[in-house]
Design a protein around this nucleic acid. Structure first.
Lengths: 344, 344
DNA sequence: CCGGATTATGAAAACGCTTCCAGTCACATT
DNA sequence: AATGTGACTGGAAGCGTTTTCATAATCCGG
């Protein structure tokens, strides 16, 4: 396997000049540059990342920490990050910390800190203060997506705001018996997200003078399957059903729709369902939702990092509110006419 | 950030001894080992991967090449690989080559070849001979999952066999009007998978003396959404419908079920559907399927690699047929009584 | 008690680059 | 013609480990 030395010999140049020519940094005459390039190409030379990293302190490698790789949101972010990074000639080291807290701890310690990444993107992770301090201590840019990350740059959608908007959409259609499917404790602990969306929901309800029934506040694990099981209870159990469900994610909204179908409930005639995400399956189910472009969030995070790495050291932690898009499809409509006992 | 030198000083040992103590290689007295360990712990020292990689030639980093990160199969493999790798103290560099052939080419060249990974796992990728030669040339273990990879170790399920088994299951239930939903051209090109499963399907049909109707051979992009759209055509269009559909993946099977529901077809009374995969949503839809433990395949691939890296250099390319499991749920049943014109 | 084998240690040589530094050269400025 | 300026270049000093090699210490059976 050829080294830079071989290239230098072949090109009749010094190692230093070849290095400069190939990296594009420093002054090199066009003639030398050309020579170095062709020599490198002929030999199939590619600089060793290890060596160049060791010498320059730059790894050309970005760490991406995700809590899971199954959920739509995370997959999408990975996609966006991966594509943008690849374009820029960077590597992506994936840290999937789905297996709990200790695992996460060791990841942060043994992996990220080993100066092996130039920057870190943390998705939906709620880190402890010490963890954040550690990250900041290694003095690498770090940006968080979809989670609070005090001290670092973050990219977030306005969770409370869109939850409120989603609930308001239902209310404006005339619904008053509205259930909310939120994330369960495990998610709350890590992402702090369910609570935020729940707050938005409650605010909209309160503003409209509607009561939030405790029994209609169900929680699931953000999966279709989990939501399906819990929605069955919600819709099948009690004598009185909600006429609308606001799910904190599209996957849970879809699970709810599936459960509704099981009971012969038509969506939206008998039950309106709204979600949040912009999941690709939304179309299939005609799901009304609020689209957060997860892939775009990932791409933006990368651009942020690269700007910081390449260019100005404007180290200020910037917080971006990523825009969302309300998509009205066919899963929400006016509530059915109340045929309850009062009508008798 | 502390270096090994600092640890050596603090422990009163030489750099060499500390290195040996911490890496566990070479002879070190228990006393020195203990000293080195505590000193390292106190300083929070972690060896630089760059430096250790440069010196040892080992990167402790494995490259995972996947064609997408959205499809269930790939996510699951990533999960399995990631978890197993993390346990072993290895890093995972993810190469998502979803954006076409040129991209893939540059990945192989610029990235993998830069001696930056100790080994490569390629998922469902059909590589050209030159590409394979390149990979083998860098002399790193490489294992392929779910795709042909001549010259390298592979882990595959018996695609033709399980496809045949799936079709036979339907036939034995009494179905004769069986449609097959396979992958489309793009998938065929890259993974060679659709064709193999299709061959198994055809063999079962032929063996049973049944005809394979060209019109009932539809193809989709392996997604729920894509299958949904195409299944609508299959089920809605022609006067005569199949009574069973064998989908080459669970996602496509689910898409088919959703389409069937749209037309008021009951599964399995009016239409039997069987898939392949073991997707987590299978349960929700009561999907009969053949479970290929994708996560387990990923884990096995890693164990393979690590064994090769750590231990004996048995460089022989081993081909493992990964076991699958037939899961019968409620989406398959005997066909409906034929109420066609003949019955009049 | 002693030679030979084994184990433990440290100095120093890689590993393959990047980059600082000093030096050369061509050119434009007084 | 002397000087200053800036573009190019090559030598060599790292970067932070691992690993070889030589040496010193320890152990064992005879």
């Amino acid at each position: 396997m050829p080294g830079i030395k071989d290239v230098a010999e072949r090109a009749g140049l010094s190692i230093a000049t070849v290095s400069r020519a190939l990296s594009g940094k420093g002054n090199v005459s066009p003639r030398s540059r050309e020579r170095a390039r062709t020599a490198a190409a002929e030999l199939g030379f590619v600089a060793s990342y290890q060596a160049s990293g060791l010498a320059s302190g730059r790894t050309h490698n970005v760490g991406l920490v995700v809590p899971s790789v199954y959920r739509w949101f995370f997959s999408s972010v990975v996609e966006g990050v991966s594509a943008t990074l690849l374009d820029a000639g960077y590597d992506l080291t994936l840290y999937n910390v789905s297996q709990g807290r200790e695992r996460r701890h060791s990841v942060l310690n043994d992996f990220l800190l080993r100066k092996r990444v130039d920057a870190v993107i943390a998705v939906s992770l709620e880190l402890s203060e010490t963890e954040i301090d550690q990250l900041l201590a290694i003095h690498r840019p770090i940006v968080g997506i979809g989670g609070p990350l005090p001290g670092a740059s973050t990219i977030r959608i306005n969770d409370a705001g869109i939850a409120e908007a989603a609930a308001r959409h239902l209310i404006q259609l005339g619904h008053s018996k509205i259930a909310h499917m939120t994330g369960d404790a495990a998610y709350e602990q890590d992402f702090r997200l369910p609570g935020t969306r729940q707050a938005g929901f409650k605010k909209a309800m309160r503003d409209a003078g509607l009561v939030v029934r405790p029994g209609w506040q169900v929680s699931a694990d953000f999966t279709i399957r989990g939501a399906y099981a819990n929605a069955r209870e919600l819709l099948g159990g009690s004598p009185e059903r909600p006429t609308a469900v606001f799910a904190a994610s599209d996957e849970m909204a879809i699970g709810t729709i599936l459960a509704a179908r099981d009971f012969g409930l038509r969506v939206p005639q008998d039950l309106s369902v709204i979600g949040i995400d912009g999941h690709e399956l939304g179309e299939v189910f005609g799901l009304t939702t609020i689209d957060q472009d997860a892939r775009g969030q990932g791409a933006l995070a990368v651009r942020r990092l690269l700007a910081r790495l390449d260019g100005a050291g404007d180290t200020a932690a910037a917080h971006t509110e990523y825009p969302t898009r309300f998509i009205i499809r066919s899963s929400t409509a006016v509530p059915p006419v109340d045929q309850g006992p009062l009508r008798a």
